[in-house]
């Protein structure tokens, strides 16, 4: 691990004023899903999927979002793209607040922000040929003349490593890795600036994963893309990201440099530390401290008061159950939400 890395981080502080640097700024974003009950569908509670989240994404960088199931990472990605309407809060994309924007105006912005889903098979229409899958978003958004479209599609196909002959095939004729390439191509045909990658390699094998990850990195350089990389796999997120964000039950517990999972215990959030220690490392020579968290992740419909993590935290004290800790800056571009990390 070199020291040069943490200098390259741009500031992602919530109080930063360099808006020009940030392609996306999220302020106090909340997304609750109502839980209904009974014959009259009375709302009896809310799933706190994303609960008052604030962060920035610098242009051209990758922000990694990690967390266990139910932490809200997928919902966060979808809410930012307004695939799921935010309950409250602001989302500034290239300076404009898109959270309250009318859908008609938002359509223009939408093509700048794309998403690649986890399961490429489920997200591709099985009855459409690849060329139509790629053409459709361009026809909908009218970004190009029809004559140009075909040429452009060929270019994108080459970029993602697909052949010409693949154009006339259906999704089921591809392997998992190729299908994910089609999904990536579909996201890219509109020339987006920002792409949410939601577990893009969760359903492929490791040797295929390596190629997809390499492709994503190459495309980022080629097109100066900004990524939000969502995954439960710490090593993949670490590999891909410039900045890593750790979520737990809808809250951000930590935003820090990519190496946070290998930092010393006093420098990171106790949950980050536990995550890093829980991950089995494919290297028998690597020594690590073992921290076993007790219990399960609480139900997001009924999150614990105070710090969300206090029920499982080895360092929890009285105050943790009472007061929600703020996301505080501990050093340059490193933010932790914990009463005992300053």
């Amino acid at each position: 691990m070199s020291t040069s890395e943490n200098q390259s981080q741009s500031d992602i502080s919530p109080e930063t004023d360099s808006d020009a640097e940030n392609i996306l700024s999220v302020r106090n974003l909340v997304k609750f899903f109502p839980i209904t009950s009974g014959i009259l569908s009375r709302v009896v509670g809310h799933v706190h999927a994303v609960d008052d989240v604030t962060f920035d994404i610098p242009r051209g960088k990758t922000i990694g979002v990690v967390g266990e199931s139910g932490c809200g990472k997928t919902t966060l990605g979808r809410t930012i793209l307004r695939l799921s309407e935010p309950t409250s809060g602001e989302i500034y994309f290239e300076g404009e607040n898109i959270a309250q924007m009318s859908l008609r105006r938002f359509r223009r912005v939408r093509r700048e922000m794309q998403i690649v889903f986890q399961d490429p098979y489920a997200s591709l229409n099985p009855r459409m040929m690849v060329k139509n899958i790629l053409r459709e978003p361009m026809l909908v958004h009218k970004t190009m003349r029809k004559r140009q479209i075909n040429n452009y599609i060929l270019r994108v196909m080459r970029e993602v490593g697909l052949d010409l002959e693949h154009l006339n095939r259906f999704p089921h004729e591809f392997s998992g890795g190729q299908r994910q390439r089609v999904c990536i191509a579909r996201a890219l045909v509109l020339n987006p600036h920002f792409v949410v990658l939601d577990e893009p390699t969760a359903s492929v094998d490791v040797s295929v994963q390596a190629r997809v990850l390499n492709l994503l990195k190459r495309l980022q350089q080629l097109r100066n893309l900004t990524y939000m990389f969502i995954s439960h796999d710490l090593s993949v997120v670490t590999h891909m990201s410039d900045v890593v964000m750790v979520m737990y039950l809808g809250k951000i517990l930590e935003i820090g440099p990519k190496r946070i999972f290998t930092l010393k215990s006093a420098e990171v959030h106790p949950y980050t530390l536990a995550l890093g220690s829980a991950l089995p490392i494919p290297d028998p020579l690597y020594e690590k401290k073992q921290i076993i968290l007790r219990g399960d992740v609480p139900n997001p419909a009924n999150p614990p008061p105070g710090c969300r993590f206090h029920t499982r935290c080895p360092e929890a004290r009285q105050i943790c159950a009472e007061k929600v800790p703020e996301l505080k800056k501990t050093e340059a571009s490193h933010y932790i939400s914990c009463h005992f990390r300053e």
Binding site: M1, S175, S207, A210, S235, K258, T262, L279, D283
Partner: peptide
């Protein structure tokens, strides 16, 4: 050898991963 080189390691970051050509 190829398999081990294709996995990202938490403690040994590198820019690009090696991969095995071809398909299963």
């Amino acid at each position: 050898q190829g398999l081990l080189r294709s996995i990202p390691l938490l403690h040994k970051p590198k820019d690009l991963l090696d991969s095995i050509d071809g398909v299963v």
